[in-house]
Nucleic acid binder design. Sequence first.
DNA 1: TATGAATGAGATTTCATTCAT
DNA 2: CATGAATGAAATCTCATTCAT
Lengths: 190, 190, 190, 190
Amino acid sequence: MRLKDDNKTEAIFEATIQLLNEIGFAETSMSKIAKRAGVSAATIYVYFQNKEDMLGKLYLNVKQKMSRRMFQGFADTAPVQEGFELVVRNYLEFILNNKDEFLFIEQFTNSPLLQNLCLEESGSLFNPIYELFEQGKRQGLFKQEDTRLLITYAMFPLAQLAKDHYNGTFPFDRSKMSTVIQMSWDAIKA
Amino acid sequence: MRLKDDNKTEAIFEATIQLLNEIGFAETSMSKIAKRAGVSAATIYVYFQNKEDMLGKLYLNVKQKMSRRMFQGFADTAPVQEGFELVVRNYLEFILNNKDEFLFIEQFTNSPLLQNLCLEESGSLFNPIYELFEQGKRQGLFKQEDTRLLITYAMFPLAQLAKDHYNGTFPFDRSKMSTVIQMSWDAIKA
Amino acid sequence: MRLKDDNKTEAIFEATIQLLNEIGFAETSMSKIAKRAGVSAATIYVYFQNKEDMLGKLYLNVKQKMSRRMFQGFADTAPVQEGFELVVRNYLEFILNNKDEFLFIEQFTNSPLLQNLCLEESGSLFNPIYELFEQGKRQGLFKQEDTRLLITYAMFPLAQLAKDHYNGTFPFDRSKMSTVIQMSWDAIKA
Amino acid sequence: MRLKDDNKTEAIFEATIQLLNEIGFAETSMSKIAKRAGVSAATIYVYFQNKEDMLGKLYLNVKQKMSRRMFQGFADTAPVQEGFELVVRNYLEFILNNKDEFLFIEQFTNSPLLQNLCLEESGSLFNPIYELFEQGKRQGLFKQEDTRLLITYAMFPLAQLAKDHYNGTFPFDRSKMSTVIQMSWDAIKA
DNA sequence: TATGAATGAGATTTCATTCAT
DNA sequence: CATGAATGAAATCTCATTCAT
């Protein structure tokens, strides 16, 4: 028998992300995905139970990749400010280098599909920084507010900036990196 | 003209928003909308050219409604801080009282459909506060950064908090109102 | 609006019966039915919820038609023998003049589809003769056995003969009519 | 050869019969059969040319098994009545002990698949009793009618009773055995 | 022998939309 | 204005079957 081809899963994932960003959920059909991935539509069903299953697995896959990148080089022994800068920089780098993945996550996150999917591993992408922010609070660097609130004010504007960047309303480039890191820090500093 | 029944337009809009939030774009069909709105599918085509047209008009309708509410009671002669508080409070009130409209806007904003629609009136919901923030900058209240950046850091976290509220991960109630207003202010204050 | 066309239901039913007998359940698809009926496949779904619903309604329709014909001219005041002869003759006539309907009933009756359909109106086609046979028993004309048993021995061989007739293994024509009526009578006579 | 595993053929046959009775022809696919039989779908094609071939062979297999059982202990030297009773009893025993096989035969017999298959060995299951009934006629025990007619009246009601038994409309148990044997005899006796 | 991978063809059903009334 | 009827196109998914191992 032929062996299962990891490239195929990858090709299916990639095709899906591209189409979702180009034409949206409503228009992205299994046959279009198959055509772009260079496989037969039936083949997708060898790898996934159905469309929903495929989208769910794709979502987890992308989120994990994103998460991995965000914490690349991160050591929880490092000073808070250093860790903070690293994570923000990593996040922005990922967003700017992986347009499709990023926009897919944003679109998926806001769709009811995600809720209906009940992915146990749900939770925010930013969960892992929880500890970092707690530490910052303990050291009196950050406001004594709910950590969730701090994360929201420090991190979500970044996503919004990236979206504005991609839809052309607010071009973002690496020269703005330091400014933005500073603003995120200021937004929650004590 | 004017015989066209505004109630019907309203019913169609409402049904659409509900379905979009319940089952998502991909699953929301004209016949389901019609059924929920209590009209025949053919009737929708009396009021709109096609599905895209309908969605576009719905989007503008909701955004206008939202915008109107956000600036209710706003006078550009009032002090910046007062105006700022009012707008933030109005926004949060709207979000908390109009779950469906809010989630619809968020979902739609992140879908490629919007881009393809090329709604001239597009642009952010927050455009009208531009002037307010500029004033704040001139008075040295806010950071001397790009106004767009300031708006992003002050306003978008609110939307995120509301989404967390609605998906149950971070319950929001009016007791947190002042805290949040303060955080938005601090995020961009000089 | 256009009016619902009864001819269409009829055409769909007829096409279905023909195909079922020509190529069997497994091969009879909605598109083939539509093509033969001269309508679009989508049109079938205007008249029926789905394939199962359509088959179920068709089954009831044909059984009713068959039942009506079987008891044409039947008066429960007539002597038992006369009623018996009439019903048997009617049944044979129907079978010989309505090949497709008859074979469809036989095929459907033996398929699990029927059971899964749970047609409340199920029950044997021969139910209505129950009373006639009871009368025959009371008058000492028939054996004092379970009426169900009597019906089975008098009536089911007829169906079998017709099937043999249609598959060519035992040609049946009206010259054999009296013989068969006599045999059915003898099979259960006291 | 002979390396082909007879157990596998058997497993495939059994799975097919079960599914055919549970969900019907239209729903019984090769993959479902494979899954239930505990083999890969591809394996079926090691043993059979295609689906049709498999069904045909299964049909012959079951009919042979049934026939063998029906004539178990039968000696054409024995008196007609004794042989008659034995065959009827054997048939009923088989039917009651082999629900799936019996219902499969009935369903298959009524489907056009059988005709299209052109199994040379087709013909009724009851063919082998031909000689017995001829003998009965010669001895003046049975009516002087076409033997085929006699077989039909004596044997087919049994199948019908079994079907009624299995669909719950007329429970059959061994206490009714003698009654039924008697009725079959009476149905054709001179 | 045995099988997972792969697929073109086709299944059922729904879609957005038009038409006749 | 309003709508039930009608449909071509396309959706998701399954089918029987083949292939490479």
